[in-house]
């Protein structure tokens, strides 16, 4: 049976210096056909991971397999099937859009028709002799995306691709990514530090914080985690008595209210019943469901509170 794994890293570690370990025990697992969102705040290790995946940094410890082949020994073969956009657009300011792609076209063995197609795809087919340095930031980003698509890659790695794009540009990019995944079967790894930017397009997520993975799984698994970490806000006529009555729920006092972690709304009903049985007047009983953004913030600020789902 064919292994559908596209990217597999095993115990990947990287240090820029003895004092600063950028990555620790990174085990990415990306399957064919996934749109994998790689999330984390700035400085969490996303770009370092992507640079290792593209061979821009040498692996110090651990192992990287792409398309089932070791990156270290099959670098050129692997890179022929990978399109990438790392951070800011990397193109030549003194060349036009077409000339920039022409630089890489023979290297990837792409046809002129393919070059024209990707230029049309990103809406830069009519830029003529206009130099890359005269482009707006959004146009630059789109040309960098065209370059990433030039080799008709099986794997597309995009590091913060929405940088510099206006809201409509972001929506267009999102639609394009979904289209490439759906129609051309491309596996896409897209990094971002904003969850809301990627949650609408990804099928799977990896969340990294301070160089280690906090979560990895499908978007549905993240939603389950979100439910798991919902909270109930309670305010009664006697909060001290309420704490005693609800001690096995580990309530936390927060000013005038108590905050209790609940697994589902059934538990909220149980708590309400307990308080009623204790003859306490309930002034407030408010379930507070975490939105994904809050969950992301929690995962990337208090990493020890939640287990890694791998």
């Amino acid at each position: 049976m064919r292994d559908s794994s596209i990217i597999k890293t095993t115990a990947l570690e990287y240090s820029y210096s003895k004092e600063f370990q950028a990555l620790a025990d990174i085990n990415l697992h990306i399957q064919r056909g996934q749109i994998y969102g790689f999330l984390g705040p700035n400085g969490s290790g996303k770009t370092t991971t992507l640079r290792l995946l593209l061979g821009l940094l040498k692996v110090q410890q651990g192992n990287i397999e792409i398309f089932g082949q070791e990156l270290h020994t099959n670098r050129s073969d692997i890179l022929r099937k990978v399109g990438s956009l790392i951070e800011s657009p990397s193109l030549y300011g003194h060349l036009s859009a077409r000339e920039n792609l022409e630089v890489y076209r023979p290297i990837y063995g792409a046809s002129i028709a393919r070059m024209d197609h990707v230029l049309q795809l990103v809406g830069l087919g009519q830029t003529g002799r206009k130099m890359f340095r005269q482009f707006s930031l959004g146009m630059k980003q789109r040309l960098a995306l065209a370059l990433a698509l030039l080799p008709q890659p099986e794997l597309l790695i995009l590091d913060e691709p929405t940088n510099g794009l206006d809201p409509s540009g972001i929506i267009e990019l999102r639609e394009l990514i979904k289209k490439l995944n759906r129609e051309e079967g491309m596996t896409i790894l897209v990094s971002s530090h904003i969850l809301s930017e990627v949650e609408k397009m990804v099928t799977h997520l990896g969340i990294i914080f301070k160089g280690s993975m906090q979560f990895q799984g499908s978007i549905q698994e993240l939603f389950r985690l979100q439910e798991y970490s919902s909270r109930l806000l309670v305010h009664t006529s006697d909060n001290d008595a309420a704490i005693r009555a609800l001690y096995h729920y580990h309530p936390e006092r927060s000013g005038e209210t108590l905050s209790i972690t609940i697994k589902d709304f059934k538990q909220a009903a149980e708590i309400s019943r307990t308080l009623f049985e204790q003859d306490l007047d309930i002034y407030l009983l408010q379930p507070k469901v975490h939105d994904l953004e809050q969950l992301f913030i929690d995962l990337t600020t208090t990493p020890t509170l939640t287990p890694s789902h791998e």
Binding site: L54, L56, S76, I107
Partner: peptide, 18 residues
Amino acid sequence: QIEYKNNTWKQVLTSPQS
């Protein structure tokens, strides 16, 4: 300097050439 000025080393080094 063509590569340094345009910040293009990373693109060159991720292309399939040795």
